[in-house]
Amino acid sequence: MKKMILATLLTLCSVSAAAHTLWVLPSHFVLSSEDSWISVDVSAANMTFVADKGVSPANLSIVFPDGQRQAFAQSYQGKRKSQADHQLTMDGTYRIELGGPARYFTFFQEDGQRRRIMANKQERAAQLPANATDVVTTRSRGRALSYVSVNAPNQTALALSNDGLELKLLTHPADVVATEPVRWQFVLDGKPVADVQVELSREGELYRDDAGREVLSSDANGYLTFTPQVAGRYVIEASVQLDSSNALADQVRESLTLTFEAALP
Rank of each mutant, 00 (worst) to 15 (best):
F64G: 03
G212E: 04
Y76Q: 13
Q113D: 09
L9I: 10
S43V: 05
F29D: 02
R80E: 07
T156D: 11
I62Q: 03
H28L: 07
D250I: 00
V193Y: 03
A159Q: 15
M90I: 12
L160G: 05
E254Y: 11
P265W: 04
S32P: 00
A249K: 01
G99S: 14
L167F: 04
D195M: 02
T106A: 14
Y94F: 13
A44V: 04
R80D: 09
Q109H: 06
P228L: 03
S201H: 02
K79R: 13
M90F: 07
R143A: 08
L256R: 02
S245C: 05
A178S: 15
D66W: 08
E237K: 14
A18F: 09
E254L: 05
A231H: 04
S39P: 01
H172E: 12
Y76T: 13
D209M: 10
E205L: 03
A102K: 11
Q122P: 03
A125S: 09
D175L: 04
A17M: 04
A18R: 12
H172W: 07
L224F: 08
L224A: 10
Q251E: 14
S201D: 06
L167H: 10
P26Y: 03
A73P: 01
A71P: 02
V193D: 07
V177F: 05
T171I: 08
P228D: 06
S146H: 03
R183L: 07
R139E: 15
K168A: 12
D209G: 08
G78Q: 00
D189Y: 01
A125G: 02
P192F: 02
Y234G: 11
Q229S: 09
A174E: 09
A178C: 05
F49S: 02
T137H: 04
V182M: 08
Y76D: 06
Y104F: 15
I5Q: 15
Q109I: 08
S140D: 05
G190I: 04
M47G: 05
F64H: 15
R116A: 10
I38P: 00
A7I: 06
V240L: 12
R233G: 05
P57K: 06
I38R: 00
Q70W: 11
M118A: 14
P129R: 02
P265H: 14
D195G: 02
A7G: 15
M1P: 06
R115S: 14
A157T: 08
T138L: 15
P65H: 08
S146L: 10
L256M: 14
G222E: 12
D111H: 11
K3D: 11
D219R: 03
R208H: 02
P65F: 03
N131W: 07
R124P: 01
N221V: 09
N59Q: 14
N151M: 14
P153V: 10
V136I: 15
P57M: 10
S27H: 12
A17N: 05
V150N: 00
I96K: 09
V63G: 05
Q127V: 08
S239V: 06
T106P: 08
Q87W: 03
V176Q: 09
T48L: 10
D243H: 11
F260H: 05
T137K: 07
L128T: 02
A45Q: 09
I236H: 07
A263K: 11
A44F: 04
G78W: 04
A17T: 00
A44I: 01
V230H: 11
F29I: 09
N151E: 13
I5L: 15
A132H: 07
L6T: 13
S32G: 07
Q197I: 09
D111E: 15
V136D: 14
Y147F: 15
A73V: 13
